[in-house]
Every structure is written in C-alpha cells, then in structure tokens.
Design a binder for these strands. Structure first.
Length: 111
DNA sequence: AGCGTGACGTATA
DNA sequence: TTATACGCCACGC
C-alpha cells in the first residue's frame, strides 16, 4: 500500500469487463473529488500491472484520453471493443450506458 | 523542503 | 456552442 495509487488500482480492478468508469468518479469515490488528475496519474503507473485494466477508465466524456500512453497504438480501443464496448473516434459510444460507477457497486467504507 | 508536472474537471469568455 | 483558463492535489526530482 503505497498510497492513492494502490487505492486507485484497487478500484479499477473492480471494474467489470464490458464496462467503463471515469477518473472523476473514482476520485470522488476515494474522497478526493478534486484529484481526478491523480487518478489518471495513478493509472499511468498501473500500466503493465495485471489486474488493473486502465483501458476501462476514461474521462468524463468517455474519451480515450490516455490511449496514447497505452502503447501508442489502438490497443486500448481494441481492448474495449473486445470487451463489448463500442469505441469510435477515440470515444466510447453510449458512454452513459456502459458507465460503471464504483460508488454504486463498491463499499465506500472499505476504502 | 520546494517546484514543476499531469490519462481531469469546472468555470468563464 | 466551442475554445481557453484556472484550480487541484499527490508524486518525482
């Protein structure tokens, strides 16, 4: 348990396949609503670690902001599509439909 | 101990 | 409506 990073990693790990979440939602869930940037920052450190599907985390607009950091290719988009999440123009389609709110499925007291 | 940085988000022009 | 500016807060140097 380093810090925020590990907490973010844990939450991301809880995101089911075929669903996506947002940085702000995770940040808010962790109690640091204004640290959405930190969430993304933590994800960057999570890349390469199994169990931390960073590709399931996008910004509030459902935009694949960090796909550039994901190997520099369309890997992120392909991963999402492979899980059943339609992506077009680096943007998740029907984002609200696939959005997965951690606060709605996880126990805040546990984190 | 301090400064710069950043996969965001909200406010303002 | 789109574009630009600012704030945030933890991490690395």
């Amino acid at each position: 348990m380093s810090d925020f990073f590990d907490r973010v990693h844990e939450v991301c790990r809880q995101i089911p396949a075929g669903r996506v979440s947002s940085y702000g939602a995770i940040a808010k869930f962790l109690g640091a609503a204004r640290s959405a940037r930190m969430v993304g920052y933590a994800m960057n450190a999570s890349i390469g670690k199994e169990g931390v599907p960073a590709h399931r985390v996008v910004n509030r607009l459902g935009m694949l902001s960090g796909k550039h950091y994901f190997g520099g290719s369309t890997l992120m988009q392909e991963l999402l599509e492979n899980e059943g999440v339609p992506v077009a123009n680096d943007q998740v389609q029907n984002f609200e439909t696939y959005f997965w709110n951690p606060a709605d499925h996880l126990d805040p007291e546990k984190y």
